[in-house]
Design a binder for these strands. Structure first.
Lengths: 341, 341
DNA sequence: ATCCGATGTCGAATCGGTTCGCATGAACAT
DNA sequence: ATGTTCATGCGAACCGATTCGACATCGGAT
């Protein structure tokens, strides 16, 4: 059932049907009704592919997510959900591309053959081939995360450096003197994952400012790894009383390892981190953390992308958020420095 | 940069370029090389939209997921990941459609206007408008889940009825006499969510077979609700010693409520359920549960869909899985019936 | 009676590919 | 010299929409 069929059955030309539907030129009431009747009867819907070819717009955006194999963190899920949601509100469809590995046929299919009007890219590295490729193609894109040369693109990002620094200061204020940073996986950090590096920088800075003893470690994004990570930390660094982390997925495992070791959170051990708000709230005990507004960030990325699609000459915009730390149930004064003892 | 441009620069016709690329007709080695050189120089990639229009195939499948607002359960995420993954392996892209609410413009855009070659639909209701609509359009589709008339469509599904029944028998074997079923949210069940109803049926059957006292309750898909749900159950049903559940997202909250009530799992209280394997394993204590192979099911759905796309006359296929219950850390003999007391 | 501007509709071109039928020319057989 | 075959490549039609320029009709003004 194409537009020609509708035209034939209503006794008008194809262009008239098109104008009747789009309203871009006047069509008499009489004709419009006849056309509409035929359309309703046949359940006709214009072919989106043909429309896209003619208009040069697909009304679809690409969403580049970390490879499907790896499990997404709660925060990443928050991004995906909010991007999909914001896109739907703007009548845009979302084409998923699990990429970031090596071969990346999916990425090339989506980006190379003009299937989409623009792209949102997640989990950007400091040096990122996908960003290079996107810039080559001239396709509008927005990063959730930024490269080592952030002025060259539009992005929204979380200021992990500031946030981890704040976590450390918060813990230091509570009297903790030996603090560990639990980063995300070693591979990710080695691959130049920005947040990992910026967290290290913020941690190092704050630790120096407060003259603390410190240790940094990487940890895969799951409970098991969080558990063994904390076990190792406790064994190797006896005086440790607190952890700052950007690895939300590891937190449940950390809780468990601490409980196993006979340490109560927050009485004996404090944890402060960066996490999606509802994740932090739903943990037991609820995590003291900087609440990342994943919804807003995803929505903002889509909004920026829509603007870029409308006018590719729009100057790059950058949104860097550093939400305040919500004090919940995982930080308390260090016991060994408790003035009452 | 379109195919005409390539043709012009290599001094051949557009059709020759097309044949050189597709190999559907012989092209002399000499000509092919010249064309390839131009293509490489200009970085030309055929426009997927034009190709789709001509071929009548978009090489894209739709994935209908529960509305973005609601948080997806771990099992649902497993389905999404495996569908995306399987599609990528088959060189198919995935268009996301968060649907199931009322307005559903997204669903209609994806399904109505031939943007996709086929659709995978998640979270199917016993009576499901989307299924009706899909059948109307004639678009190939596969359900993850099934309606009240399952023979009318292709699907993969989990045999919740059998699985919950097995959970009850397992608990009964351990001596539990008062068992609760914790279902998913009341709205979902009221809306005719199949697994909710089938779980009820399996529960009722097994409970009757074993002559147990029982109670059924619904619970939203999050830790908070799991907590208040168990608090309520404990208050209203004093002799309760075990729960069977299909609500994996509520389990952490249930653990917490039980701990608050001074009950140790599994010593004082048992839980058996249906859940994604890695989720069940990563909980503390790890959940005794039927391990749903989300990866396989998603992959199988995609495979069935690909078959249907290739030949729409393929008869409907049905895959119903009932994985065995993995005994982990949340079920133990009932204490009140312990022969030693 | 003529001209004018709306108003409503049509035909043709276009987007960027694919594919079918045919033409060209060289090689080979008769 | 003529006919046949095969390898190549060209031109045109087509997929299903949008959009531009042109045209017909008609009421109103001159």
């Amino acid at each position: 059932m194409n537009i020609g069929e509708i035209a034939k059955r209503s006794g008008v030309s194809r262009s008239t049907v098109s104008y009747a539907l789009s309203g871009k030129r006047p069509v008499s009431e009489e004709t419009r009704r006849r056309i509409q009747a035929v359309i309703d009867e046949l359940g006709y819907r214009p072919n989106a592919v043909a429309k896209a070819l003619k208009e040069g717009r697909t009304h679809t955006i690409g969403l580049v997510i970390p490879p499907a194999g790896r499990r997404l963190t709660d925060m990443q899920l928050g991004f995906v959900a909010s991007v999909v949601d914001a896109a739907a509100r703007a009548d845009l469809d979302v084409l998923l591309s699990p990429s970031g590995g090596e071969h990346d046929r999916s990425f090339e299919r989506v980006v190379g053959s003009r299937r989409v009007d623009g792209v949102v890219v997640m989990e950007i590295r400091l040096e990122d081939d996908r960003v290079t490729r996107l810039r080559e193609t001239g396709l509008p894109f927005v990063g959730i995360g930024r490269t080592a040369r952030p002025e060259e693109m539009s992005w929204v990002d979380i200021d992990y450096e500031t946030l981890i620094s704040r976590c450390v200061h918060h813990l230091a204020d509570l009297g903790h003197r030996r603090i560990a940073l639990v980063n995300r996986s070693a591979e990710l950090v080695a691959a130049g994952y920005g947040p990992g590096h910026r967290a290290q920088a913020g941690f190092a800075r704050a630790v120096a400012e407060r003259g603390l003893e410190s240790v940094q470690t990487c940890c895969a994004d799951d409970a098991q790894s969080g558990m063994s990570c904390v076990e190792r930390l406790l064994a190797e660094h006896p005086g440790l009383t607190a952890v700052a982390t950007i690895n939300e997925a590891a937190v449940p495992g950390m809780y468990h390892a601490l409980a196993q070791a006979g340490l109560s959170v927050p009485r004996d051990f404090s944890i402060a981190g960066v996490a999606a708000q509802d994740w932090a709230e739903n943990l037991h005990p609820p995590l003291t953390a900087a609440d990342v507004p994943a919804d807003e960030l995803g929505a903002q990325a889509v909004e920026m992308l829509i603007q870029l699609i409308a006018d590719p000459a729009t100057p790059h915009r950058h949104v860097l958020v550093a939400p305040p730390i919500s004090l919940r149930g995982t930080t308390a004064p260090a016991r060994s420095h408790d003035p009452l003892h």
